[in-house]
């Protein structure tokens, strides 16, 4: 009974995390923070997988392995996202400096 409750507790927490992350993704206007929000949602999905795989004494190793794969995929995409955000900021920064120089001369 307690195992059932534990599994559901974590899975429900995961469900709320998904919603929170989505809220952040839509309402936050900076790409870096949106990236963070997606990671919160993703962690929520993983926690749902783990919680619903919780048995009487053990947690199903199958979803555990899928979650590890998911975590690695998530960090790969997050790293690329962060690199894109920085590149974008550099381009904007350079364009702004060009504008300022153009304005002075």
């Amino acid at each position: 009974m307690e195992a059932l409750a534990t599994g559901h507790l974590f899975a429900l927490t995961g469900a709320v995390l998904v919603g929170l992350g989505l809220f952040g993704f839509i309402t936050l206007r900076h790409a870096l923070r949106q990236l963070l929000a997606v990671n919160v949602s993703g962690a929520g999905v993983f926690l749902m997988l783990g919680g619903l795989g919780r048995g009487a004494a053990t947690t199903d190793p199958f979803p555990q392995a899928l979650v590890i794969t998911g975590i690695v995929v998530a960090v790969a995409l997050t790293a690329f996202g962060a690199a894109l955000i920085l590149r974008q900021a550099e381009e904007d920064h350079a364009a702004k400096e060009d504008d300022e120089r153009g304005g002075k001369t």
Binding site: T6, G7, H8, V16, P61
Partner: peptide
């Protein structure tokens, strides 16, 4: 979305299916 997900989560009983 959270409500829908919660209803779905509660309709599934947690088990170690493949262990």
């Amino acid at each position: 979305l959270i409500v829908l997900l919660s209803v779905a989560v509660l309709s599934i009983s947690p088990t170690d299916r493949m262990g």
